[in-house]
Amino acid sequence: MMEANRIFNNLISGTVGPVMILVTIIIMVWYAGAVYLNSSFLIDRYEKNNVNWSFSELASDSWSMERPVLPSPHQVAKELKRTIWDQKITSKRSLVYHTKVTLSSAMLGFAMGTFLGIVLSVGIVYVSALDRTLMPWIIASQTIPILAIAPMIIVVLGSIGIIGLFPKAIISTYLCFFPVVVGMVKGLRSPDKILVDLMNSYSASKVHVFWKLCMPASIPYLFASLKLAIALSVVGAIVAELPAGAQAGLGARLLSGSYYGQTSLIWAALLTASVVSATLVSVVGRMERSINNRMGLQT
């Protein structure tokens, strides 16, 4: 009993144990869900062919269907192995290749969105006319479903000869700049009144107040926004690949998966996209920690 207790405590302390437990639970639910969702089709087929079936047969059949409603985890894993491990990474059949395509437009969009967001926030904070005129438009822009506006942007830009990476990056930019604007406006306005008074007591210029007080004070707000923005940039890049029938990218994989009813292909692409997003968010988190350390802030 004591021994079991000790093993359990070791398991749930740290991060590896709890994560493993959670992953195991998800996989179990996934297998159960695969049986549940695929069973009606299988049972229909059994009855049509007058086959006597047991639950174990149903389970094993539902985990190995060619076109399941929900593929089982090992089928997705096999798909991932087939498209990542067994391919040259430059091959068009490789998920790594498609990930790279999506990632490059996501990163370009993230960079442009961050830049645009910072520029807009500075304008909003320092030009009161912009505060009143710009903010309602910025908020309105985010009420339009991205799926509705993405094809328009791609088509319009395509018709004036801009194709390829850039239009896709624009969709990411469109999603990215919003959290950056909101966060940075709050951040640039965050310094205490007493610190603003302090700068005034030195008769500091606006430029000095901006660089020595407001900008450093807004860094924590910026990073909170960047974590949101970088995840959105991947979403934007994938969404941008859907309407235009892109030839490459994770969005293109999702699209061809649904054309041919290959759900395991869709799930493999989805899983890859979420791993990419999570990695990017944690990279931003690491940057935040290292900058906080350099700024001497407590973390």
């Binding site: 205490d192 007493i194 020595k212 450093p216 860094i219 001497g296």
Partner: peptide, 25 residues
């Protein structure tokens, strides 16, 4: 030179560089 009710030091600057703030400007 104005001394406020609270120290009003910039948290991202170390002590030395807090003192440098007015000098830089």
């Amino acid at each position: 030179g104005y001394v406020f009710q609270t120290p009003a030091l910039l948290p991202w600057r170390n002590i030395e560089s807090n003192i440098h703030l007015p000098l830089e400007m």
